[in-house]
Design a protein around this nucleic acid. Sequence first.
DNA 1: TGGTTTAACATACCCTGGTATGATACTATG
DNA 2: CATAGTATCATACCAGGGTATGTTAAACCA
Lengths: 202, 202
Amino acid sequence: MAKRKEAPKTERGQQTRQAIFDTAIDLFAKRGYDKVTVDDICAKVGVTKGAFYNYFRSKDQIILEEFMRMDEHYVRFAEEISSLPTSLEKFKVFTRAAITLMSETGVRLMKVLYHSQIAPHMSRPYLANERRYLYRITNEIIREGQERGEIREDVPSEEMASMLIDCFRGQIYHWCLANGSFDLVETCDRLMDLLLDSLKPR
Amino acid sequence: MAKRKEAPKTERGQQTRQAIFDTAIDLFAKRGYDKVTVDDICAKVGVTKGAFYNYFRSKDQIILEEFMRMDEHYVRFAEEISSLPTSLEKFKVFTRAAITLMSETGVRLMKVLYHSQIAPHMSRPYLANERRYLYRITNEIIREGQERGEIREDVPSEEMASMLIDCFRGQIYHWCLANGSFDLVETCDRLMDLLLDSLKPR
DNA sequence: TGGTTTAACATACCCTGGTATGATACTATG
DNA sequence: CATAGTATCATACCAGGGTATGTTAAACCA
């Protein structure tokens, strides 16, 4: 599922791959993604492009992999909300945690991600992969809410989840466009207030 | 405001610029944006890169300019909805017209736009320019609705407009990610049903 | 009319992400 | 032990967007 180009098969390969990854993330954080060339990364690690492209299919993929790790957090969030009384509250708290995570990740990294995911050659963008925990958990919250009669049932849960995620994603996209010049969490809180109303049964 | 690199100052310049623009749009439509090089465009026009970059600051800007023309349509839409009875209906019809326009523009072009607008070096993205007609008109509809008591007043109209636009933008982003594999207008119609509820006064 | 400016291009080049291919060294197998 | 296979990397190269620097020719003055 992770779609890594190819996992290293030797101990040495593991280390090289890891060194490339760590160095890249470090340099990106310091200078910004577009100010770091693949050659820069390789030079600092002490290898050449041959090594880089043996383990990563593109420069973008470094960012994508860093982002995919974030998905792991969602599972933790899902556990933490299990005790909340209503589905609406679960949705609210879970989403807020996710947005906070984005915010902490920083606009620079998020911007690179949102940029690369919509690139012309990108075939199966990770962001839209409905098997991600983000989708599965959101869908489950909605579905449960519908079952309990706390959420309107005229829209299938999958579709509802997708629409809601897209709404917040629009805010994130805007946040990236604006280079993080407004508080993402705060804005999404207000959006949440709007959306929660529309979820209640007719 | 248009931020064109530099407008031609002679008749000949006008024609060259126009020829480059028309040829580029034509080639993009036929082969797709990323399958057309700047040299391709220049070759067909019969000039060199020197001419191209004298009139356009980047390859992306061709797309952006095509898109900026679409903004003109919004003014027409705004006139057409002026006779509708309620603000909610105005918002609904106006937004639907805008989305339909995107849909007709095609996912290929929209994808290039959404991709280039979020590029690392992009400083003042046109999409987020709040002086665009899209923002001004939407804001005016909301403001009027609040004045009439048809729309909740606990959120300032500018902020409300921005949030709503972002919601639909999230759908468009998703649509681009999915390479247009679902019906954008239809999906946005369903989203509209959700959002309208949440706009009503508390 | 001669000199000066400047718009409109042409030429040559750089930068950088990505690829194609080859060399090396380690491992498994007969 | 010889051979084949394979993972890891190095070298050389390409493509394509973008830039820096001329060169030409028309317009504009004095």
